[in-house]
Amino acid sequence: MLVINILGFALISLIVWWFWLYKPRNGMVVKGTVPITVNNGVYTPAQVRVMAGEKVTLSFLRKDNSPCSSIVQFNNLEISEELPLNKTKDISLESLEPGTYPFSCQMQMYRGELIVEGKADE
């Protein structure tokens, strides 16, 4: 009985960490097209850094056949796009203001963020 309680507590702790405490690692600033793979419940990379005012294209390749992975949403940008299975879907974004723009599936189980940094000369 003690083993079952310990395993239950460990599972609850993992769920809390994954959905509320986990933060993706810092990424480097990129330009142009950024490939993002959707597979095994995650976006890879889950964090994309770009410079403000520059055009960037996020090229999503969905390898996960889960229904949850079929849509990517940028709620702050009012963007919602369907991702076809095993095909790329490009989402072009132009001249974004500095800030953090989270993206996720419709149930927010797959999570990522687009970080737009201010210009170096500002």
Score class of each variant (00 low, 15 high):
1 M>D: 11
2 L>P: 03
5 N>G: 09
6 I>A: 08
7 L>C: 11
8 G>K: 04
8 G>I: 03
9 F>Q: 14
11 L>T: 13
12 I>P: 02
12 I>R: 06
12 I>H: 03
13 S>D: 10
13 S>K: 04
14 L>Y: 14
14 L>H: 07
14 L>W: 09
15 I>K: 06
17 W>V: 04
19 F>W: 14
20 W>F: 10
20 W>K: 08
21 L>F: 07
22 Y>F: 12
23 K>M: 07
25 R>M: 04
26 N>V: 09
28 M>Q: 03
30 V>H: 04
31 K>Y: 11
33 T>P: 05
34 V>C: 06
36 I>F: 05
36 I>D: 00
37 T>I: 15
37 T>H: 09
38 V>M: 08
38 V>R: 01
38 V>W: 01
38 V>T: 05
39 N>F: 06
39 N>G: 06
40 N>A: 03
43 Y>L: 05
43 Y>W: 12
44 T>V: 01
44 T>Y: 00
46 A>H: 01
46 A>S: 12
48 V>N: 00
48 V>Y: 00
49 R>A: 02
49 R>T: 01
50 V>A: 05
50 V>S: 03
51 M>T: 10
51 M>I: 14
52 A>C: 11
52 A>L: 12
53 G>E: 11
56 V>R: 02
57 T>F: 06
58 L>D: 00
61 L>F: 12
65 N>T: 08
66 S>N: 07
67 P>M: 15
67 P>A: 14
68 C>S: 14
68 C>L: 15
68 C>T: 12
69 S>G: 07
69 S>K: 01
70 S>K: 13
71 I>F: 12
72 V>E: 00
73 Q>F: 10
73 Q>R: 14
74 F>D: 10
77 L>T: 13
78 E>T: 11
79 I>L: 09
81 E>G: 09
81 E>V: 15
83 L>F: 12
83 L>Y: 11
84 P>D: 14
84 P>M: 11
85 L>A: 11
86 N>P: 07
87 K>F: 14
88 T>H: 14
91 I>E: 00
91 I>Y: 02
93 L>C: 14
93 L>T: 09
95 S>F: 10
97 E>A: 15
97 E>Y: 13
98 P>F: 12
98 P>I: 13
101 Y>I: 05
102 P>D: 01
102 P>R: 00
102 P>Q: 02
103 F>M: 05
104 S>Q: 03
104 S>W: 01
104 S>K: 01
105 C>R: 03
105 C>G: 07
106 Q>K: 09
106 Q>H: 05
108 Q>P: 04
108 Q>G: 07
108 Q>C: 11
109 M>T: 06
109 M>F: 08
110 Y>N: 06
111 R>V: 01
111 R>A: 01
114 L>W: 02
114 L>A: 02
116 V>Y: 00
117 E>F: 02
118 G>F: 05
118 G>E: 13
119 K>M: 10
120 A>G: 08
121 D>N: 15
122 E>V: 09
122 E>K: 12
122 E>P: 05
